[in-house]
Amino acid sequence: MANSDIVWHETAVTKAEREKQNGHPGFVLWFTGLSGSGKSTLANAVDRYFYDRGYRSYVLDGDNIRHGLNQDLGFSAEDREENIRRISEVAHLFVDAGTIVSTAFISPYETDRAKARELLPEGRFIEVFVECPLETCEDRDPKGLYKKARSGEIPSFTGISAPYELPRNPEVTLRTGERTSEENVQDLIEKLAPLLQNE
């Protein structure tokens, strides 16, 4: 609940000024998908693409955020909701700074992703569904989490013992089970072209 005595402080440098200096608008690429689907890989690959071309960008990764800002949260439904709420607010601040921010989080609940979208102006929230079959994610299992979940060591694991609500109308769907990272990044950049050219 917001405190009525706290008001938003307008900054001396506006978002429009920052975007003009950066040469591109600020927006969020919200990568969502199962563990092991390739969210972080794609977010970092597109971030490298942006960096190499002089765009101002940054990646907010689920594991990295839980090392600091969200280290007090667990994996209950309530904590997952709070995890995404905090990330949504941080992403909003990045966009206000005229930065392209990629968020790589499972973010399993549709309502949480919708709330993140509502914080941003129309067209500044790009939901990227990283679609990958559960079997493929389990085969990859880069952190050994699926094995632990199947053995009961990790309760409430998304895709096994906790739900993942598929995005209904994502702006972009990238199929990592059948296309390479390079192909998916190229597809994503092509779909972002109108936004990136809106300078």
Results as ranks from 00 to 15, higher is better:
residue 62 G to Q: 14
residue 63 D to H: 14
residue 65 I to V: 15
residue 65 I to W: 08
residue 66 R to A: 14
residue 66 R to E: 14
residue 67 H to V: 06
residue 68 G to T: 13
residue 71 Q to Y: 14
residue 71 Q to A: 13
residue 72 D to N: 15
residue 73 L to K: 02
residue 73 L to T: 05
residue 74 G to C: 08
residue 76 S to Y: 05
residue 76 S to K: 07
residue 79 D to E: 03
residue 79 D to I: 00
residue 80 R to C: 02
residue 80 R to A: 03
residue 81 E to I: 03
residue 83 N to K: 11
residue 85 R to N: 04
residue 85 R to D: 06
residue 86 R to N: 09
residue 88 S to C: 12
residue 90 V to W: 04
residue 92 H to C: 11
residue 92 H to T: 10
residue 95 V to S: 10
residue 97 A to T: 10
residue 102 S to W: 07
residue 102 S to F: 04
residue 103 T to R: 02
residue 104 A to F: 00
residue 108 P to I: 03
residue 109 Y to V: 11
residue 110 E to V: 09
residue 110 E to M: 08
residue 110 E to R: 15
residue 111 T to Q: 15
residue 111 T to C: 13
residue 114 A to K: 10
residue 115 K to Q: 13
residue 116 A to R: 02
residue 117 R to K: 09
residue 118 E to T: 15
residue 119 L to T: 11
residue 119 L to Q: 03
residue 119 L to K: 11
residue 119 L to F: 05
residue 120 L to I: 09
residue 120 L to H: 13
residue 121 P to R: 04
residue 124 R to N: 06
residue 125 F to K: 03
residue 126 I to L: 01
residue 127 E to L: 00
residue 129 F to T: 12
residue 130 V to K: 00
residue 131 E to A: 14
residue 132 C to R: 02
residue 132 C to N: 00
residue 134 L to F: 09
residue 134 L to N: 01
residue 135 E to S: 14
residue 136 T to A: 08
residue 136 T to D: 07
residue 136 T to S: 04
residue 138 E to I: 10
residue 140 R to Q: 04
residue 141 D to M: 06
